[in-house]
């Protein structure tokens, strides 16, 4: 693609900056709340100007102690360890297994393909609330209640969302390419591993990102399946600040900031490596 002209670039910057304002709010608000004293968090006064509103976002006095106190309630290193362990398993498992299945749906001819694909899509359509109890019964019967297994093993058996997404990407790759490779004597595994995966890297990275975020933020899994505070994950641990009997917003936001900032940095770096890297190598057609 050609380089944009100076004015085009200026216009794009202008549009993006204006649009970005509401999107930066959660981060700014989170950090600002995390540094406030309890009295400042939800001001009651009506403000009549923008500057008045901006002033409300500025913590004064700044209370750094929220961080120390927030991290005291939650055993951060322990929960981080638990969370990262789950993330590692889930990302590897879900991305690899989903890619395999997606390849079968997109590029292989086999009897039952359409049927199985329809069933996979259908599993996403039934609201999860009504399968919770039978699912729980199943895991309990397997003896997995109180362990991480209900949150790990299914990831290795394909994720319908990723399968569908990767299928869409594999479909855009011309069949001729696969056929040529087949004529060259390449095995299906070889085509999948050496051709498809590298070509679909942006999509794979997207799946990895979503799975990571999904596991990182998962609340229901730990809630339902874990009964030991030492096994909790960060996302579930953070709920310790939100109670039926009043919530510690400043502490919650301090802990949430510590919980979120690494992910923002990770995303920033990852999108550089994967999304941008592919533009130079990913050429097909």
């Amino acid at each position: 693609m050609q380089k944009h002209s100076f004015y085009t670039r200026l216009a794009i910057h202008a549009v993006l900056i204006i649009l970005a304002v509401p999107f930066t709010m959660p981060l700014i608000w989170m950090i600002s709340t995390s540094l406030k004293t309890k009295e400042q968090i939800f001001p009651n006064e009506v403000v009549t100007s923008i500057s008045g509103f901006l002033a409300e976002w500025r913590p004064s006095p700044v209370r750094w102690a929220n961080y120390a106190e927030g991290l005291r309630y939650v055993p951060f290193p322990l929960y981080l360890r638990n969370t990262l362990m789950l993330c590692a398993f889930n990302v590897t498992g879900a991305v690899l297994s989903s890619a395999l299945v997606a390849y079968a749906f997109a590029k292989l001819q086999w009897r039952g393909r359409k049927l199985i694909f329809s069933i996979v899509i259908a599993t996403m359509i039934l609201p999860g609330q009504v399968t919770m109890i039978p699912t729980f019964a199943l895991y309990r019967w397997l003896g997995w209640y109180g362990t991480y297994l209900p949150m790990i093993v299914p990831a290795f058996l394909g994720n319908a969302f990723f399968i569908f997404l990767l299928r869409q990407f594999f479909m855009t790759i011309p069949d001729d390419l696969c056929d040529a490779a087949r004529i060259d004597g390449c095995s299906e595994w070889g085509i999948f591993w050496r051709m498809m995966l590298p070509l679909a890297k942006p999509a794979l990275a997207t799946c990895a990102l979503f799975q990571f975020l999904g596991t990182w933020n998962d609340f229901n899994g730990p809630l339902i399946y874990l009964n030991d505070q030492n096994k909790y994950t960060l996302a579930y641990g953070l709920q310790q600040f939100l109670g039926s009997y009043g919530s510690e917003w400043a502490l919650l936001m301090a802990a949430t900031t510590v919980f979120t900032i690494p992910i923002i940095i990770l995303f920033f770096l990852a999108q550089r490596t994967f999304i941008q890297g592919i533009a130079t190598t990913g050429s097909k057609g």
């Binding site: 919770m132 109890i133 729980f136 019964a137 309990r140 209640y145 609340f219 229901n220 809630l223 339902i224 009964n227 505070q229 579930y236 709920q239 310790q240 939100l242 109670g243």
Partner: peptide
């Protein structure tokens, strides 16, 4: 003791599952 967040969801599921 164990803090259980998220209302009675966990309790109901655990009770239904017999635990």
């Amino acid at each position: 003791p164990l803090t259980v967040c998220g209302g009675s969801l966990k309790t109901l599921i655990a009770t239904a599952g017999g635990d």
